[in-house]
Write a protein that binds this DNA or RNA. Structure first.
Ligand code: FES
Ligand code: FES
Lengths: 146, 146
DNA sequence: ATAATTAAAGACAAAAATACCTTTAATTAG
DNA sequence: CTAATTAAAGGTATTTTTGTCTTTAATTAT
């Protein structure tokens, strides 16, 4: 479904929303360990999420790290997909035609369309905060620990 | 969503179901041109679909090529995914956890679950024949022609 | 000011996916 | 039987994705 990069981005964002605040920043190594992802690769992805502070924030130096503001927690999960340029996933034709189009639809188009809408809805209506609260309250998981 | 290999496999299968019969086989080059795919790569994929005659059939030599039997047209589209080993796509966790599990669900699990079911349903209920007829009757498309 | 800590940036490496190319085997037509 | 045609098989090449490593810049604590 998603690329590794996207999966790490989503898991990292949820974890940061769970555990960080402006006064409690999380280091790369803590995040990577928590979400079970390769640290250096995760660094690249966090940089994308930090760009223009579009999703998360970062500060360098001692006691530095990554955090997310309360206001950014209100962003829809879709924002994460946009930040790492995988948002167009939901615009694509399921059979791989160059354009998914109503006027030149593939044989699965009209059946796939409502499912696609639900996927878009899923990422548009869930905020980062909501997801992180879910993970908090219902003992849900964002890593592969045993 | 799907890999290129899967996209080509689905488009090729639909095209073969539309145009072939036991007495009218289609050459690799015709298929690749029709579905707008790289011929050599498409050859590999058709081989997988031909293995054990699980989806399509092939014969070598003059007037040889690929075709599908009436009985195989009754197979669900899911069979194509299985043939190229991308069927597990729908078993995977959307956040990339090693296992999608009810007992250790990710924060999106319960919202994603019904969508996943619809995707599975889509590929399980549609037969190859139904899709190819759709493509016939409603001027739907399986290539990128202008 | 200096040293320590942390992310940013960029080069590099490995693996996987995609695409291509050559040889072989099967089949058919003549 | 021979030549032509077509898919099968297997190797190679390219591109993309994933992952690593090193250097630089920013920040903080002492
Ligand atoms: S054209 Fe294929 S999904 Fe819309
Ligand atoms: S655990 Fe993530 S989708 Fe089921």
């Amino acid at each position: 479904m998603f690329s590794k990069a996207t999966e790490y981005a989503l898991r990292a964002t949820i974890y940061i929303a769970q555990k960080s605040s402006v006064v409690k920043k999380l280091s790369l190594s803590e995040i990577a360990k928590a979400i079970d992802s390769p640290p250096s690769f995760t660094a690249k992805i966090l940089q994308l999420l930090t760009k223009d502070n579009c999703v998360i924030h970062s500060v360098r130096g001692p006691n530095g790290g990554f955090y997310i503001t309360e206001s950014n927690k209100q962003l829809p999960l879709k924002k994460v997909l946009e930040a790492i340029n995988e948002n167009e996933l939901f615009d694509k034709c399921i059979l791989g035609l160059k354009k998914c189009s109503e006027t030149k639809p593939c044989p699965l188009h009209f059946q796939y369309k409502p499912i696609k809408q639900e996927l878009i809805h899923l990422f548009q209506t869930n905020t980062i905060q909501e997801l992180s609260e879910k993970a908090d309250n219902e003992s849900l998981f964002i890593n592969n620990a045993i």
